[in-house]
Amino acid sequence: MLNRLPADERRAQLVESAMGIAERTGINSVTIRAVAEEAGVSLGVVHYCFENKEALVAAMGEALVLQLSGALRYAFGTAQGDGDQSGLRGLREVLHSGLSNMWPLIEMTPNRQLLTYEITAYGLRQQAAGAELAGSIASLQYQTMDVEATAFLEETARYTGTTWTEPVEHIARFCLAVIDGIVLRWLVDRDGEAVIAQLDDAVQMIAMKAVEAETEQG
């Protein structure tokens, strides 16, 4: 007999089943029937929770955004270390720590990282076709990353006594665009040593957009 789960738990189970399918064989393999078989439930159960595939993919995107947000908060939240981390040198140390903390979380989940790009592309195609629900996922994904990166950069500047020379939202967008490219290239060649060098370069580029607070005032 099928275990009766609260609606939220059932939806979460079905979303995780859908992501398992997509990680193995791609987003195009996600169908209502395939998800029902993966989760061991009837078609009716899936249809009760999700009207169609677009609604299911939208829920997958939302789940990935929440996971991404949690990973970024963990990585950035543990970036501050002991000792003096003031000034531009301290800024570079904290930036490097934040990016370095983030990378293992990405490296451990290559299929999920690839799925994130797939859902973004799928959402953009659906948006162009007029499916606003699925199409909104791409925007939500990047808006969430923007918020987390902006908060990290603001806190890093405050903690190190530095000031950004450009609007912090613009710097966050630049930072995320660089990381996006690094992750996508790594998914292609899995060159971890190159990633380490690229993250170092990213830190240097980002730090160039800051000055020490007293220098700016003086």
Rank of each mutant, 00 (worst) to 15 (best):
T163D: 14
R10L: 09
R89W: 07
A194W: 04
R33L: 10
H47T: 05
L99V: 07
E193V: 05
L115W: 01
I21H: 05
V65Q: 04
A12D: 10
I137C: 09
L114K: 06
R190F: 10
G87S: 01
A12G: 03
T165M: 13
R173V: 13
D8E: 06
A129L: 13
A172W: 12
T31F: 02
P167V: 11
A202F: 12
I119M: 02
R11L: 05
S97V: 03
D84Q: 01
L176V: 15
G192N: 08
R185T: 14
Q217M: 15
L105Y: 01
A149L: 12
F76A: 01
V211P: 12
Q198D: 15
E38Y: 01
C49R: 02
Q141V: 11
S97E: 03
L187I: 12
P167R: 12
T109P: 00
E155F: 07
G135Y: 04
Q204S: 15
L140A: 15
R4M: 06
M108L: 09
D180P: 11
S86H: 02
L115A: 01
L64Q: 08
Y117N: 03
V94S: 02
W186M: 11
E38M: 05
E23A: 08
Q126V: 10
A59L: 01
A151W: 06
T160G: 13
G161R: 11
A36I: 07
T31R: 03
E155C: 07
G40W: 04
E148R: 11
T25R: 08
L95N: 04
T156Q: 08
Q113K: 08
M102T: 04
Q80N: 04
E62Q: 07
L64R: 03
E212C: 12
E166F: 14
G61N: 01
Q143P: 10
E118N: 01
I196T: 14
I137S: 12
Y142F: 14
E193H: 09
A138I: 07
A55F: 02
E9L: 06
Y159M: 14
E169N: 12
D189C: 11
D180S: 15
A210S: 14
G90Q: 00
D84F: 02
A18D: 05
P167E: 13
G26K: 01
A34S: 10
L140P: 11
L56D: 04
M102G: 06
I32G: 11
R10T: 06
A22P: 03
C175R: 10
